[in-house]
Amino acid sequence: MANTETIDLINDKSALMRRHVIEMGYRAGGRGAHFGPALSSIEIVASLFFGVMSHDPKNPTMATRDRFVQSKGHACLALYSALGEAGYITQEQMATFKADGSFLAGHPTRNPQYGIEVSSGTLGNGFAVACGMAKAAKIKGEDHKVFCLVGDGECNEGIIWEAAMNAVKYELDNLIAIIDRNFVQLAGTTKDIMDVDVEALWRAAGWDVLVLEDGNDAAGLLNALGQMKESGNGKPHVIIANTTKGKGISFMEGSLNWHARPMNKDQYDQAIAELENAKTT
């Protein structure tokens, strides 16, 4: 079981990361940001970077590091905020999000020096690449794990299932996928766009499946991720983490309007006030 100290750390980091998401996204001005899908996955990414993964920001390419692949690349602000909090990138660099010439684009671009393992943005590919990375670790006899964050809408993509079948064939039990099940995709709810039983699909593909009723709960995430990191049962692992789109900002939570858009000053002020308020309560 995760200890209280780690749970508190993840919650503290999550609060700081939410603040970064709002700040970076607001500064992008009219270019906007994918606020909703970043905020739903904050606790997942925080749990990985500050609780579960072995990594060293001072030695970002060390061979033994666990790999994090953000396949749902549009939620890059969750990754960038974790990289900022971990010390891979500076506050000044974070402030360049989506700016002309910046290396922090609206979808991640591979840059191992700054902790970005894989370019993503065209959905499904990051996951399939992560499967190749996990196989490479097995071929090379390396013990590190590959963690991959996948969107629930992203599971509409055919490549997800090509790769999911292949991961079972090659017994990639060093691969842990986390589905950010926030129930909203670009044009509507997942129920309206493509109403499928995500859990049943992953089970049918042969994966070791765990459903987390609250994917924004640090304790549950730490326990699930820790358990799967240690499990070598011959099957690739997937955690279906039920989250809240836009988690932490009242007017974004569960909203169909905050997948991706610019934020105005009033919205920014309200979001910051809510985050400040959450800190004191």
Partner: peptide, 24 residues
């Protein structure tokens, strides 16, 4: 050192990319 990914050309390429990123 031989992998048949099934009738799945998209995964043929992505899986290869993942292997290559790790030095193969």
């Amino acid at each position: 050192r031989f992998f048949d990914v099934g009738i799945a050309e998209q995964n043929l390429i992505d899986f290869s990319a993942g292997l290559a990123l790790e030095g193969l």
